[in-house]
Amino acid sequence: MLFAGVFVLAGCSGGEEEASGETGDGDKLKIVAAHNQTSPENPYQVGMEAFKETAESADANIEVEVHAGTLGTSESELVEKLKLGAADVVLVSPGFMSKTGIEEIDLFALPYVFENYDHWESVVDGEVGETMAETINEKSNNDFKLLGYWSAGVRHYYGKKPLESMADLEGMKYRTQTSGAVANYWEETGAVPTSVAWGELYQGLQQGVVDAAENSYPYFVQQNHHKTDNGKYITETGHDYTTRFLLINGKKFENYSDEQKQAIMDAAEASVEKERAEVNEQEEAYKQQAVDDGAEVNEIDREPFMEIAEPIQDTRAEEIGVSDLLEKIREMK
């Protein structure tokens, strides 16, 4: 796999020393690592704990403080803290990264761009993933250095009725992105993209504000969405093998000692392996829990869904200048 150790950073542009990441007390380096999920069982927390354990066990005098939602439950808060120095390592999604001006990231969030987990891993851990890491670093002016690619599972439909064909989506109020390529895709299927905050989605499903939603098993089952009338039918559409970005402030990273840099990169690699394994394990466990709780799961022919996705992928890739990377991803299927 490709991790931070093989990525070449742009030259350091300096920056003032901030509250976190300072050295002191015998050159002790304190790293504040944060994600936006509050559940201690969430794969994000498992991955961050692996990062902490590996970094602190190295002979580099590092202390890692993990925050599970306590520095902010929105990615915008976390990234702002990363830029200002109040956090050193954070986890973000493609949707938010594209809002920072790095639109190329959208490539990893397009519906059906990945065929399965093996395909996803071969892409993010290979040449395409390395190219994207360099783009993140360059376009952020070294504010963001990618340490590794995490997963948030494979996303499926869940709603008030099972999907037997695409026609079942016609007119359905569907909680998903309401703008951009993802929204365009679901509109093409006949659904009506509808915005509901994640923390309000259980109530939205329960009260019929939306007819359906989409996410991976660990996330929507932990929130009991499958226990609502509008969430108990799960159709395994597998439309998004999700990518999450583990970032560190690149300017501060450049000022760490060689031993500290290596310890952080080793910790990132350990966190990637642990978090991905935890996602895979929880996918199976929470699917079984959903079934045990009375949810109904069915499969569907994904080919018609993929056919609609392809021209949307082409259009968006051309808009953001990554048509060559899209072609490489397709060649790797």
Rank of each mutant, 00 (worst) to 15 (best):
Asn230Phe: 12
Gln260Tyr: 08
Trp186Asp: 07
Gly238Lys: 11
Gly190Val: 03
Gln206Ala: 09
Glu303Lys: 04
Glu254Cys: 11
Gly294Lys: 04
Leu205Ala: 13
Tyr219Ala: 11
Ala197Val: 13
Gly190Leu: 06
Lys251Ile: 03
Ser216Thr: 15
Glu259Arg: 15
Gln206His: 05
Lys287Met: 10
Asp229Thr: 12
Glu188Gly: 06
Asn230Leu: 13
Asn224Phe: 08
Asn215Pro: 07
Lys287Glu: 13
Asn249Cys: 03
Tyr286Ser: 11
Trp186Lys: 07
Leu246Val: 10
Pro218Glu: 12
Tyr241Ser: 05
Glu236Asn: 00
Ala268Leu: 08
Glu187Pro: 01
Ser195Asp: 14
Glu303Phe: 04
Phe253Asn: 06
Glu275Arg: 14
Asp258His: 05
Ser216Pro: 09
Leu205Tyr: 11
Ala183Asp: 05
Glu284Phe: 05
Tyr185His: 06
Met306Val: 01
Glu236Ile: 03
His225Lys: 09
Phe245Ser: 10
Lys232Ile: 13
Asp240Ser: 13
Ala263Lys: 04
Ala213Ser: 13
Val192Ala: 01
Thr243Asn: 05
Asn249Tyr: 03
Arg175Leu: 06
Ser195Val: 13
Thr194Arg: 02
Gln262Trp: 02
Ala277Thr: 10
Lys274Ala: 13
Gln207Thr: 11
Glu283Tyr: 07
His239Gly: 10
Asn224Glu: 14
Thr176Ala: 00
Ala270Asp: 11
Arg276Pro: 04
Lys252Tyr: 08
Val209Gly: 03
Arg302Phe: 00
Val210Arg: 10
Pro218Arg: 15
Gln289Cys: 02
Asp293Leu: 01
